[in-house]
């Protein structure tokens, strides 16, 4: 009865498409809990996961917006590193923390704008080329200004942004160890703002329209180039925020910061169900994608599984996620 199985499978596809990612997260949580019953669901471990994914979630959100426009940004890891170095240098120069805190987002924003202007004004044939170029340039500049060595020693105010703890003593009683990491609060605030931006505003709608059919967007009177510059600029800005969080977590700027993290960001976006060809994807999906990668790393670390298995698993999940998308397109709701 192969025929019958086929149709049942096809009927399931829209549900897999919609809820599959939540199902995957639920299964992972369950499995990890069963494997590590004492540790996994502890307050300490769960907050750890959010701390670990905090800066990557910023990169992924930026890359997501870019991918929705059918573009790509390979330079986010380098933007993060350059922003971090700039922050460290301004801190070492003795600038007040109120200024230092602005440096990383500002540098990220400028880097993103350079990408956006390059893609539109220099009419690069594909954003891949422009951002591949700046992947080298930004990291190179970061090493030039720092001399290629780590720089440490940030003010406490700076560190508390990525590393702060909001104690829950009022809830759990005097001296309780439970706390909410400040980086989790930052993730929530930024993701909510960008969810509103992408789903409730004109520009958000246009960003999706551009990814689906740039010609249609142009014909509808939308200034496509201006929106693209904005999207790449915001992507850079988010990488700068990521640098600020990372500064708090590590307490120093180092030459390898964010190395290859652009690939993790792309992976999270794809696992989260966004179409690599633009026009489709959700903010919640991106968060799910980042979370899945975080869970995987955390769980495998807890069980002392080699980092090489993490690579194999993440790669497999990427391919599986896209294969589900392929099936959806083939059998899905298309008439």
């Amino acid at each position: 009865m192969e025929q019958k199985d086929d149709t049942l499978f096809i009927k399931l596809i829209p549900y897999i498409d919609k809820y599959g990612i939540l199902l995957l997260i639920a299964i992972m949580l369950l499995v990890l809990h069963l494997l590590q019953p004492d540790v996994f669901f502890s307050w300490r471990n769960i907050t750890n996961i959010f701390k670990q994914i905090s800066w990557q979630s910023m990169l992924a959100l930026g890359v997501f917006m870019v991918i929705v426009t059918a573009g790509i940004d390979l330079s986010v890891g380098s933007i993060l590193m350059l922003s971090l170095m700039a922050l460290a240098i301004s801190s070492r120069a003795g600038l007040p923390w109120q200024i230092v805190v602005l440096v990383a987002p500002a540098v990220g924003l400028v880097c993103g704008m350079i990408n956006g202007l390059g893609i539109t004004i220099l009419r690069m044939p594909h954003p891949f080329i422009m951002t591949l170029g700046t992947l080298y340039i930004f990291r190179g500049v970061g090493n030039l200004i720092s001399g290629g060595v780590p720089i440490g020693g940030f003010a406490n105010q700076i560190r508390s942004i990525g590393n702060g703890k909001i104690k829950l003593e009022w809830l759990y009683g005097e001296g309780a160890a439970q706390y909410i990491p400040s980086s989790l609060i930052i993730i929530i605030i930024i993701y909510v703002i960008f969810w509103i931006f992408l789903n409730q505003t004109k520009i958000g709608k246009w960003i999706y329209a551009i990814g689906g059919n740039p010609g249609a967007a142009r014909a509808a009177g939308i200034n496509v180039n201006r929106i693209l510059v904005l999207v790449y600029t915001l992507c850079g800005f988010l990488a700068g925020i990521g640098a600020l969080i990372l500064a708090g977590r590590t307490g120093s700027a180092y030459p390898n910061a964010g190395l290859q993290s652009e690939l993790d960001a792309i992976a999270a976006v794809i696992i989260g169900g966004a179409s690599f060809f633009g026009g489709r994807g959700t903010v919640l999906g991106v968060f799910a994608g980042v979370f899945i990668m975080g869970l995987l790393r955390n769980g495998l670390n807890l069980m002392n599984v080699s980092v090489f298995w993490q690579q194999v698993l993440i790669g497999s999940i990427i391919i599986l996620a896209v294969y589900i998308d392929v099936l959806r397109r083939q059998f899905g709701t298309r008439k």
Binding site: F197, T201, K202, I203, K205, W206, Y208, A209, G211, G212, N213, G215, A216, A217, A219, A220, G221, I222, S275, G279, R280
Partner: peptide, 26 residues
């Protein structure tokens, strides 16, 4: 010239969307 991943109202109003109050593109 239609945006393939958007629904009918989004396409009909593309570029001239109805809004609650005017904040330009935002």
């Amino acid at each position: 010239a239609l945006a393939d991943d958007l629904d009918v109202p989004s396409n009909i109003f593309l570029g001239q969307e109805e809004t609650y109050f005017n904040l330009g593109p935002f």
